[in-house]
Amino acid sequence: MPYKFIEHTADIAVEVEEDSLEKLFASACNAWRDAALINKKPDNTGSKKFIFTSGSLEELLVELLSELNFQLYAKKWIYISVKNILLEKFNSNYHLAAEVFGQPLEQSSVELKEEIKAVTFHQMNIEKNGENFFTRIVFDI
């Protein structure tokens, strides 16, 4: 498992480790899904494309995961998987494009597990750990 949930007194904390930044971002999305939803193997029925630009990798990751939160709680659309992540640095900014697969909540058998209020910056630091990239993410619940 490229991510594992760790003890946190009040909230949900997860550590993610992958051999590329793109995979790190994808696994972070899957960790968000496992924190927010009781997964009953839903089918993808559609996709949405997101593009973000931020001054740091951490801000970019918070943007992406926060969008999943918004899609769930405001648009009632659940994230299931992510493909085709493109990540590059250009003019001192980081750019991310991702195709996110999911389905409307009402068509899904998925149950909501926790209300993730927000994705925090607390203890988030995307760094190299040997050959891999590593970060911790704390979800405010």
Binding site: G55, E58, E59, V62, E63, S66, A118, V119, T120, F121, H122, M124
Partner: peptide, 24 residues
Amino acid sequence: ICEDYLKVLVQAEKKYGFKLPDKQ
């Protein structure tokens, strides 16, 4: 609202040259 303005204030922190021990 908190999330939206945290993004703004992360940039403001850089703009005003503050160095704080936690991005949050």
